[in-house]
Design a binder for these strands. Structure first.
Lengths: 347, 347
DNA sequence: TTCGCCAGCCAAAGCGCTTTGGAAAATCTC
DNA sequence: GAGATTTTCCAAAGCGCTTTGGCTGGCGAA
């Protein structure tokens, strides 16, 4: 069923039908009702491509999700982020245009999307320091929101981020308060902004408490289970093993748990672990009785916020907006006072 | 840069330029070269909406990913499936159109997509028995490929699936061969086809070996970590706990591991566990030294296959095609002979 | 030399919708 | 009740591309 047919069947012009459907005031309420009823009856769906061509609006948002070349890994948080964003999109009538692209092709992917004009806005995932995409998109004039922030960019832009630095500072302080002195940071890839910020928060906390951060205890890689396992295994084999771990991901935290179990140690007794928890739907830390003491911040909520900002900027462009979410700190069963704090310190 | 401008700058008609770019034979190779060079130089990207409107082809594939209403959970395998599919899409010039929809809205979502004609084909995820979507899409005439199969559908259709039944039969047989008699099945939601098939394979194996499947040992739910944990905890607390677990997901397997650790049992010694491993990029079971004995089947590869079939069917429609993948069986460190097989049997 | 043919190009219509610039009908003003 | 508005509708152009149906000029055949 096309607009023209609908119009003919009603004895109206396409113009009037179009206006009736799109809520323009130039049609009487009587005919609008008639048109709407007919549209309903015939299950009329305007062809979005024709509409887009005529209006210049595609009613679609682009998401470019990076495929880490090293392990061809797609970050598991995307699914939840997009689920959150799409709640908003669905309500507002936007579609999602997905592009999966490996690191090298990334810039070109953005450039192409902008040139083809197939979306009204873009969400930028996983920013790095001095991220070139931000300048690129700004110059093109396509509205965009960054999930995260990028240092080294002068111009203002829209972003939604978690206060990673504060969260990790707080977690580290908590561990120090429990008497831990040798604390390992099992961080994400520190080419990523969020990982850099987490590291600075961690370092800040230690330094503020007079503890010299030990580079050997600060690891950085893609956050897989294996990475957590290997890291913990290696660190625990040291002569002076850490007594606590701060880990950037629940998945890697499971790896750490596996290594500690193998070593015959018990989390929350012999060893402490705090994990960052993105509150993924399939990897719940548990509400009432958290598995891990954790910094919780819903990536789905971040998706909702980012989508809201983006749509708002598309509809009425204005000065850049940002939204800084604070992570919740949940004390679970994976943390405990340091085993021999006094002895270790006074030795 | 638009086609018309390009044409003018070359002193050619839009017709000729269009034909040159799209490889039609009516233009001389000389002018084609000239056009291509100019297109390159001006970074000309044809407007996909205009193209789609004119040709009726949108060069986009729809993915409708279901949001399980119960826990608002988005299945973690989608990210990898789509990563695999998009390798093919990118090569062939297709875009991905994503729709996230909760169970109730699903049928309408498909209907709308078909009516709006915004995609050339669809991938159907997570089929259920007698899945209505298959009849719907068939009647609409939109090419589609199902990731999985649905019993109760007479008509043939395109699908890509893992031989879940055989895989689970084999795993169960392996456990029985190790002397296990009380084996628990920690399965996915059995409204899903794949879970039903896994269960039948499991039941078949036990029955064939003269073991009566115990309904109390067969669980079914969404495959979260918590689910694995709770299931194992409950089952291990029984008077006659199982000596082995067969689990439908790596994530739930981690939960099972957590429960067994808590109970002071060691996997691969006191208790056996086989997990189904979708070979997710961020949840590797480990190639050389698998954490779990596992049935491995790459969901990313399934994505590639599905995309290939779909594009092929879009280009030259033909009789339905399917592709049945076999899961690899990997013996890892989580399985061992049953603790007291002889005694238990001869008692 | 004339004709026919074909390679190579172009004008214009059309994809399904929106939107500008009227025009007719209805309402208001005095 | 005539003119001035306002309401309600419509015809047609246009979004950027493809594609049908010519048209032209150069070539070989007769």
């Amino acid at each position: 069923m096309k607009l023209k047919e609908l119009a003919k069947s009603l004895g109206l012009s396409p113009t009037t039908v179009s206006r009736a459907i799109n809520g323009y005031p130039e049609v009487s309420e009587a005919t609008r009702a008639r048109v709407m009823a007919a549209a309903q009856r015939h299950d009329y769906q305007p062809n979005p491509r024709a509409k887009a061509l005529a209006t210049g609006q595609s009613m679609a948002i682009g998401h470019v999700i990076p495929l880490a070349t090293r392990h061809e890994m797609v970050n598991p948080v995307f699914a939840d982020f997009i689920a959150g964003a799409s709640e908003i999109y669905a309500r507002e009538g936007f579609d999602i245009h997905l592009t999966v692209v490996s690191d090298e092709g990334e810039e070109k992917a953005y450039r192409d999307i902008a040139a083809k004009g197939s979306v009204d806005g873009i969400i930028v995932h996983a920013p790095r320091a001095n991220d070139g995409r931000i300048a690129l998109l700004s110059s093109v004039g396509l509205p965009f929101v960054v999930h995260g922030r990028a240092t080294g960019i002068d111009a203002a832009y829209n972003w939604v981020d978690v206060n990673n630095r504060r969260a990790f500072r707080r977690a580290a302080e908590f561990l120090v308060d429990l008497g831990h002195r040798r604390i390992a940071l099992v961080n994400g890839l520190e080419t990523m902004e969020f990982a850099m910020r987490r590291r600075s928060g961690f370092v800040e906390a230690l330094t503020a408490r007079g503890i010299e951060p030990d580079p050997d205890l600060m690891l950085s890689d893609e956050m897989t289970e294996q990475y957590g396992y290997q890291s913990a295994k290696t660190l625990l084999a040291r002569a002076d093993p850490p007594t606590a771990f701060l880990c950037s991901s629940m998945i890697s935290a499971f790896g750490i748990r596996r290594a500690t179990d193998e070593a015959g140690l018990k989390l929350g007794r012999d060893l402490s672990l705090i994990a960052h928890d993105d509150d993924l739907s399939y990897l719940q830390n548990g509400a009432d009785d958290p598995i891990f003491t954790a910094l919780r911040s819903s990536v789905r909520e971040a998706g909702r916020r980012a989508a809201t900002i983006l749509i708002d900027q598309i509809r009425n462009p204005g000065p850049p907006v940002h939204d800084l979410l604070e992570a919740e700190f949940l004390v679970g069963r994976s943390t405990a006072p340091a085993p021999h704090p006094a002895r270790a310190l006074n030795a």
